[in-house]
Design a protein around this nucleic acid. Structure first.
Lengths: 350, 350
DNA sequence: TTGTATGCGTTATCAT
DNA sequence: ATGATAACGCATACAA
């Protein structure tokens, strides 16, 4: 047999015994089975017994008996990223409302460990898996990941991607294209004519989509952005900083820096200031995401607002109540938020 | 019986059958029991069978049979708080290293739900519970919480508090007193003589400790801070903002604002700037925690650095390998980080 | 309405 | 070294 019962382990049998009822009755009294009901008197006796003994149901045993857990698993790359943290916040809220748990499985910032993470969550028999982050090239580890997902789903698991589209998988998406396009429009109307775009990594799907949509709309407006004004960089604060450094060193001309996320914009802004640029007045800055703390930057940063908490909440909702056949899709709007980093340009563009 | 086996459910029995061995052998081959060993040939056959069938062990069943899970539970108040997010990041790292999982149980920012959260985690039979946040008054819900903790521990569970001290419970602490005292010293040496202290809520233990230590050291230096220069407020950005507004409206005199955490300082700084104060030169600002993004504030914010990731990592380590008898204690140092928000005062204090 | 008995998937004990 | 089987704690189909 497995380990002998540790002293403190109170089981439902103990409760039943103390209450003088059968195990089944105790179970029904505590949980309240569907069609069965139990006499009020007995029920109270059972509850009192449970209370006295300090009974706490064993979720693992319940999971086995019921064939399902109350846990949702989320694959996380970097919990400290404020963009993701906000999404995760929405997820915890949604789980709290439903009396569910959220189990984190981290890739440790190594994307190639994603399949492994999915398998782990599968092993836990989580009710659903939430896959966040838009960092996957479509090939390479893709097959391994697809296989892990396929197996999980074949076991009856639910999976939804957040912010990224996977064939045959339910998803929560945001309007990256629209947001970028409207940002391009808004900046144009503010008088900006020569954007420098910090695109982020080429393999990063979200970054690429945002950058391309921005470039496309700018072109429509008659604003052609030469390749040297499109800088590839890491999707991080340091990446933005580095990109800005390069841009300044190479004497790049421009009136605004547009990054595909907020931390890159922040890093770039700081780098520019250190280089003596009059941030805002001389050179505008814009990000994407509207993470917390943007109002503490000086100047406050213009960005595209993403409903991150809502993404988290909706992904849980979709995972729990959605179709689960790959047709489920929730689209969240994005809105441009103009702040002090992009003052209206008065003079003619340089 | 519970639900009928869903089609996709591959069990160890299936694997054993395909490999032509007994269930016991399959188990040993896959997991590798302690003293038992299995012939290499059989082991490979089993592994191949598992691979073919896409077998994934059921963690719930393992938990039952083994009497222990591989999961650590963490009680979280607000995941989006950057201070906590950093701690949680350290926790996920530590769990990843150990092949463990992290399950979040949120209070939804309601402190009185903490006992309930502990019971939930207890129900999951997590290997350890990590209790974060220093927000508990010693009375009130305390009893309920203590009872929940007592029961959990009596079942063999481990529990460690992070950033707060509970009688008889292992803990990871930081040097709040020392940090505050050294901050007071450093600011004094920079020439600041009339601090305005944003203490945070009175019932918040951490905030109180930080504030008191600061006041004490200031007094030692001959700097008496009158009660009206000690402002109670929410422990949030909005709280700092509001406190600053009140201070300015009431015409409070001072040369520096010292908050018991960073977000309050940030909020206060922004409020002051909006009111036309020359932030930094005219009025200094300091926080506590050194959360991410402080370098993006303008001026960059002086603070007391806390090794937040390390707190997370150490708390997991303590929970897993510590004594578990309440004698375990890890103390982490804090260091003052002077930045642009507290320039050296040249003139005589006003 | 209540009780009895079985099964969930795995590990560990005991015998071989 | 391998196999048969009890036990983990609970929910439920079935009998009463």
């Amino acid at each position: 047999m497995p380990r002998k019962r540790s002293e403190g382990a109170v089981t439902l049998s103990d409760v039943a015994q103390l209450a003088g009822v059968s195990l089944a009755t105790a179970s029904r009294a505590i949980n309240g089975s569907k069609d069965r009901s139990v006499a009020e008197e007995l029920a109270t006796r059972v509850r009192e017994a449970a209370q006295m003994l300090g009974y706490e149901p064993d979720a693992n045993a319940q999971a086995m008996a019921r064939g399902a857990t109350q846990t949702i698993g989320v694959a996380v790359n970097d919990l400290t990223d404020p963009y993701f943290a906000a999404i995760a916040g929405g997820m915890t809220d949604a789980c709290l409302d439903r009396g569910m748990f959220l189990t984190l499985a981290s890739t440790g910032n190594q994307l190639d460990r994603l399949p492994e993470v999915v398998r782990s969550l599968d092993s836990l028999r989580v009710r659903a898996i939430l896959l966040t982050g838009g960092r996957w090239r479509t090939s390479g580890i893709g097959d391994d990941l697809s296989e892990a997902i396929r197996r999980y789903i074949s076991r009856g698991g639910r999976l939804v991607t957040v912010g990224v589209r996977l064939p045959g998988i339910d998803r929560v998406l945001i309007d990256n294209e629209g947001g970028s396009a409207r940002l391009a429009q808004a900046l144009w109307e503010c008088g900006y004519r020569r954007p420098i775009v910090l695109t982020g990594p080429e393999m990063h799907s979200t970054a690429t989509v945002r950058a391309q949509a921005f470039l496309a709309r700018a072109r429509e407006l008659g604003c052609r952005i030469p390749p040297e004004n499109q800088i590839v960089s890491d999707y991080t604060r340091a990446g933005g900083q580095e990109a800005m450094r390069l841009a300044l060193e190479s004497g790049l001309k421009g009136d605004i820096v547009v990054a595909t996320n907020d931390v890159m914009a922040l890093g770039a802004m700081r780098q520019a200031r250190q280089a003596g640029v009059a941030v805002g007045t001389e050179l505008g800055f814009a990000g994407f995401g509207d993470i917390a703390g943007l109002e503490d930057a000086v100047p406050t940063l213009t960005t595209v607002r993403v409903l991150k908490e809502e993404m988290g909440r909706q992904s849980v909702a979709l995972a729990v109540t959605g179709p689960g056949d790959g047709t489920g899709e929730i689209n969240l709007p994005t809105t441009v938020v103009l702040r002090d980093s992009t003052p209206r340009r008065t003079g003619r563009p340089a």
